[in-house]
Write a protein that binds this DNA or RNA. Structure first.
Lengths: 205, 205
DNA sequence: ACCTGAACACCGTTCAAGT
DNA sequence: ACCTGAACACCGTTCAAGT
């Protein structure tokens, strides 16, 4: 055969990632194979390996797109300057995204790079973009703190929400309790603590 | 060949699970295959399927043992009656377990049952045992609440700690920040909130 | 009753051969 | 330059044949 030039390099990679996304949406990472992606886009298996280093690379790029989609979902509308409302709004959007894209979201955490490999640099950068949203929403409450402390606090919120959503979605919580209710409890305590601290009345905890 | 009776049914299953645990400890779930477990214990592949429904079943039983080990690690020493100290102690033990058994712990959450399947009942029961530890530690702070509210609160703590450890361990946090520091921040706010609530001074949050 | 190992239908990955 | 498809070394799972 040789070159078909039905599609440019970029088009073909996008085609493969779209096919991969559909598979993961329907069946999760378990259903995703390089051969199936090839079949779905009408190319042979070798072509996948002309455009991706290996299956892990393809999965990581798909996960990268999911992180971008999450960022978009969290920033669709301005968050406002009132920190408590902004944090609650971010949480609501985050929960909506995970419940609307359960398998894509799960595959972000189900995938672990193989032995010697690490995640690409852009993965960490995308995470920092997301954490930045939380940090900016929090900022008015933490005006008296350093940048490092604000980021630390954003990480705590991000991690906790992740844990709440992830255990709920995986059914590993032995509960029919909703992630929304748990997130609400979590935020109530945390925001109360931050508010009190900002007001200077709880600095001796 | 036929029956070898080198080992009883129970011994053989235990042998297989021990081999599986060693593989996962060294290489994570990626390295675990039914054929490799068979090879490691000196039996052929068919024998694995005489003792386990399939590879998923083997993984779930291994995860069950990990949950048991976690329970043991959390209860090795009495927790005392002072709720704040008890919660901090549980957290410390939890963090120690996850850092000493990173891959076994990760495999608890990396594994998702396939399409139609759910987790076995005993999985939920083991989780409830663990949640019960948190709940009992909290109880003195939540004497004025219902049983359901206490369990809800235990779940929030459990989920948040899970999220903090899991993002740290997977390197998906873009941070070299320690889980211990994040857990500490989380607990400080939460315990302050609970204390204030118990004292009746923060009921209007 | 339970162990064996061939058989089947898949995988990921590589690479010489083609255009 | 890039697509093909055979080839290789694996998988999970089943099951007739053995003892």
């Amino acid at each position: 055969m040789g070159r078909r030039s039905d599609h440019s390099r970029e088009e073909l990679a996008a085609l493969a990632l779209d096919a991969a996304r559909k598979i993961v949406e329907l069946e999760g990472l378990r259903g995703l194979t390089a051969r199936r992606v090839a079949r779905d886009i009408g190319y042979t298996i070798g072509t996948i390996y002309n455009h991706f280093e290996n299956l892990d690379d393809l999965i990581m790029r798909l996960n990268g797109q999911t992180l971008d989609a999450l960022y978009t979902a969290l920033t669709q509308t301005p968050l406002g300057n009132e920190p408590v409302a902004a944090i609650r709004s971010l949480t609501e959007r985050y929960l909506r995204f995970t419940s609307q894209n359960p398998r894509l979201w799960a595959s972000l955490f189900e995938f672990h790079p193989s032995e010697g490999q690490g995640l690409p640099d852009w993965h960490g950068e995308k995470i920092l973009m997301l954490l930045g949203l939380v940090e900016r929403a929090l900022a008015p409450l933490l005006a008296h703190r350093t940048e490092a402390q604000r980021l630390h606090c954003a990480r705590v919120i991000w991690s906790s929400l992740h844990g709440i959503c992830s255990l709920e979605a995986s059914g590993k919580m032995a509960a029919t309790e909703s992630a929304a209710a748990m997130a609400d409890t979590f935020l109530n305590y945390l925001l109360a603590g931050l508010n009190a601290e900002a007001a200077g009345v709880a600095s001796t905890v």
